[in-house]
Design a protein around this nucleic acid. Structure first.
Length: 250
DNA sequence: ACCTATGTTGATAC
DNA sequence: GGTATCAACATAGG
């Protein structure tokens, strides 16, 4: 269930694996692990230790000791990081690291849209949605002719917002997903950023985006959690979108 | 059987 | 270049 809050929780899991010598890795899944072939990730990591875990939006980057390479991880649509847990059935651990102390780190994913890479390139990714400052937020989000929601989902504009978090934040800020990004006032942009930060913090604390206040509205027959109005459903920015027409007027 | 899904990337067209 | 749409990726679950 990975959006920024889940990625942050995954980063925190990785911190439990720092400072432990890597004895081997399983990078046999050539779709998830790249580059693939001849154990390239294994060659890069074997004998090293992980020393720091970073996150930019949904992208994870783990430094190794000395002049070792970075390990890049992305959870895709269904991935998670499990440290020192039992191996998953059905080969759901698509990439794993075995440590000298007997522990292990697994990239677990029922689907296979997650990624493990060496020296990831995050140069095309915008500033983290939870860290961006007020002025940069105004400048980056408040422009363009795309719908506001599409702007929020653009990882090059802002990193970390996924489909569920976008709906949650727009509902909290009482802004329609269909508003033209460039039509927002500075007051609205500031409000959006404030609600974004609050929603991210709450989701990290509670365990993920699915704990959001607006999530129940995605189920059939549920009204707006605030006013009870029937929520609207449509495709915006290419994704299924729910919003309250009363709280979030066009 | 058919449809949908919390994500990313790349092709294509305006 | 910005934007919109779509397909692909792989798999589970309703």
């Amino acid at each position: 269930m990975p959006e920024l809050p889940e990625a942050e929780r995954a980063r925190q899991q990785i911190e439990k694996a720092l400072g432990r010598r890597i004895v081997s890795t399983d990078d046999a899944d050539g779709y998830v692990c790249r580059p693939h072939g001849r154990g390239e990730i294994d060659d890069a990591l074997r004998g090293r230790t992980l020393v720091r875990a970073h996150r930019l939006g949904k992208f994870l980057r783990v430094e190794t000791d000395g002049d070792g390479p970075d390990l890049g991880l992305h959870l895709g649509m269904a991935g998670s990081i499990v440290v020192d847990g039992a191996p998953a059935p059905n080969s759901w651990d698509r990439f794993s690291i075995a440590f000298e102390d007997g522990g292990r780190l697994a990239l677990r994913d029922k689907r296979r849209l997650s990624r493990a890479v060496i020296d990831p390139d995050h140069s095309h990714i915008g500033p983290d949605a939870g860290e961006i400052g007020r002025d940069a937020f105004r400048e980056r989000v408040g422009r363009g002719t795309a719908p506001l929601k599409a702007r929020l989902l653009d990882q090059g504009v802002l990193a970390g917002i996924g489909n569920l978090l976008a709906d949650e934040v727009l509902w909290r800020a009482r802004l329609s997903p269909n508003r033209l990004a460039q039509s927002l006032t500075e007051e609205e942009l500031d409000r959006l950023r404030r609600e974004l930060r609050a929603a991210i913090r709450a989701a990290i604390r509670k365990g993920g985006v699915h704990t959001g206040d607006f999530m129940p509205a995605r189920k059939r027959g549920r009204g707006c959690p605030r006013c009870g109005t029937d929520v609207r459903r449509a495709t915006v920015g290419g994704r299924t979108t729910f919003w309250c027409p009363a709280c979030q007027p066009e």
